[in-house]
Design a protein around this nucleic acid. Structure first.
Length: 273
DNA sequence: GGCCAGGGTAGAA
DNA sequence: TTCTACCATGGC
């Protein structure tokens, strides 16, 4: 992998980076397709345009430092492919999902987004988040920022309901209150993964699956294995007949790369049913 | 018109 | 600790 920075542009030469797979694998909801391998991506109050394929990607943005970290461009995924190739059951998922990078998303934005994701589908999650941004986020010209905790200061439970959040309305209201205390985010960043799970379980609306998504996408840790309906369908056996058994088994099997293996399986399962 | 979606909570057993 | 009913909403 090789990256070149030129002003407001980052050029990435990497055969293990496919823009469409990275954005459409369910880890992020604020992306907008312009055309083939051509997207706008929003995170917090920042935005970039990502284009390109065949090993050459261009990222155009006013904040190259932010998106260099966001796309985790110091990290070479070849290492993970080599490690996971040792597991024969992953060979198809590795072929299918090659090119997915795990984005280093903003922790607070990830917490809110994945509370919304519970028992929901990706299309609707995107719609809810866009309505939250346009109603409460800062106007940045031709897009809206993700609302900060203080932007939500006067948002009521019924406001969340009105914007289509459903039964998650009170979870979001309470989470916004808690997250106005910056110390929680710092505690999460400093905590060991198992302790981070416990902190996240103290939020109403966050259980095992959502917590592991937040730790994977918001803290960038791969010692996670979020089990949603797709993963459960793909992984269940006679012995592994509950989500918690699936989670424990594959956390142990794939270890420090479990989160990435999970993402490959999720992607393949959604492609092929 | 039921079924399903990046599930979780509360209460019961 | 594990089982069950229930929770809003929109696309299919």
């Amino acid at each position: 992998m090789h990256t070149i920075r030129q002003g407001n542009k980052i050029i990435v030469q990497d055969n293990n980076f496919v823009v469409s797979k990275t954005l459409e694998c369910g880890q992020i909801f604020r992306y907008f397709k312009n055309g083939e391998e051509d997207y706008f991506v929003c995170s917090t109050d920042k935005r970039c345009r990502v284009t390109g394929c065949d090993g050459k990607i261009e990222i155009i943005t006013d904040d190259p430092d932010y998106f260099y970290n966001f796309f985790d461009l110091n990290f070479d995924y070849q290492r993970i492919f080599d490690k996971l190739s040792a597991f024969p059951e992953l060979s198809e998922a590795l072929d299918c999902g090659r090119g997915i990078r795990i984005l280093r998303q903003d922790l607070y934005e990830t917490i809110i987004s994945f509370i919304i994701s519970a028992n929901n589908n990706i299309l609707r999650i995107k719609g809810i988040i866009e309505r939250l941004c346009s109603e409460y986020g800062k106007n940045c010209g031709d897009y809206f920022a993700f609302p900060t905790p203080s932007d939500f200061k006067e948002t009521t439970v019924s406001d969340f309901r009105r914007l289509g959040c459903g039964f998650r309305d009170r979870y979001l209201y309470e989470a916004c209150m808690k997250l106005r205390d910056e110390n929680i985010l710092e505690s999460l960043r400093k905590a060991e993964t198992e302790d981070a799970r416990k902190i996240l379980y103290s939020f109403k609306g966050i259980g095992p699956k959502v917590a592991d998504c937040i730790i994977l996408f918001g803290l960038g840790r791969f010692d996670t294995y979020p089990v949603d309906t797709w993963i459960f369908k793909a992984c269940k056996t006679e012995e592994l007949d509950t989500p918690s058994k699936v989670m424990r088994y594959f956390l142990d099997r794939y270890g420090e790369y479990a989160g990435y293996a999970q993402q490959l399986i999720f992607f393949k399962q959604r492609q092929t049913g």
